[in-house]
Amino acid sequence: MSEDILGTAENWLRAGERVALATVVETWGSSPRPAGSMLAVTDSGRLEGSVSGGCIEGAVAEVAREVMREGTPRLLDFGISDEQAWEVGLACGGKLKVFVERLG
């Protein structure tokens, strides 16, 4: 009943899926989801959990697919006005960092 992103992700792994896990590491301003919030993604396109109010999940899922192929974790910045930052903005004006890693 309760949310168990890791449990769901583990079940996907057992079922033979490739899985990546995205976790909110740090937030500034009015980011909707606190540090520790998780989003699990499979290469078949399944999603469970969230790292924002829905603004950046698509972009994170794209990176997650690369991460699950390459195996190298990535640290993503969102909403930060920096040339290195991801183009996707947050409507709320919040900023956050998301760590994406391959699971299993």
């Binding site: 976790t23 590491v25 740090e26 606190p34 540090a35 520790g36 960092k97 760590f99």
Partner: peptide, 17 residues
């Protein structure tokens, strides 16, 4: 019961309880 980043001896960590 709060997750967050931490810098320890120059290294950045994320701590998730």
């Amino acid at each position: 019961d709060r997750a967050g980043p931490a810098t320890v001896e120059g290294e950045s960590w994320f701590v998730q309880p």
